[in-house]
Amino acid sequence: MGRAQSSSEADVSPSASASADAATPASRAQRLSTSSRLTRVLGIAGLLLLGIMLAFGLWFSGPEIAMRDSVRLLYIHVPSVFVAYLCFGVTFLGSVQYLRNQSSFWDLMAHAAAEIGVLFVVFVLVTGSLWGKPTWGTYWQWDPRLTSTSMMLLMYVGYLALRRLDLPGEVRSQRAAVLGIVSILNVIVVHYSVKWWRSLHQSQTFGIDTQMDGLMLFSFFLGVIAFLAIGAWLLVHRFRVGWMESQLDEIRLEHALVERRNEGRAYPREDDLLQVRPGES
């Protein structure tokens, strides 16, 4: 898919890439990516925190008295949910903003956040499943928490599918925004499922009954901030990719417009038309 896309992008506009080359001397050539100072800071912070978190989570902290080492999955499982929740929150916010003022920034942000959110929900389900086997004794149960989480995943996969539909841009963005708003209900259901229904899953990790010993809590805390930094890093990059795609689409559209106009003329070139106007002269 990537190859097909890039080949179609290659013929977008020779002039566009040529002008980019012309305007960017060798010094700027390095910057032709989605990186910036912001992403570098986020990326380095994320990697550093992740390194420390791995040291504490996998080495310095001890096993849990009953769960033994499987408790270490908590340090990535719960932070993954936090990132997913926040991403879906951004999707919700972006969708509201888009419907209010057709902001393409928020439209693209909502899309980017949904994709990152889906990735992290997959992580949540995988780590949860791997954690469930040694503790509960099963990889999967149709328990309220697990069922609602998989429904949430499906809903946001549906959102991403909707964003790929071959619809006019505005119609697609509008429908996606509606879905992005509605889907937040599912996130709330997931979060409160352990409270509202009887569940095999333990309650919220930051609940009243929660107790966690020192180094475990510290590892968990490190996991949360490391994942937040990495999530933000991914989100910025994903947004920029989406932004560039939308810009290139616009350029493509303008070119297609000019070409279509020219096709309709007797003369292939606009310049000729400017000089000789049949019927008028």
Binding site: S6, E9, S33, T34, H237, M244
Partner: peptide, 13 residues
């Protein structure tokens, strides 16, 4: 994501 970003960035005026 980074690879995709680089490819797109080269085409963007």
């Amino acid at each position: 994501l980074i690879r995709r970003g680089r490819r797109l960035a080269e085409q963007l005026p």
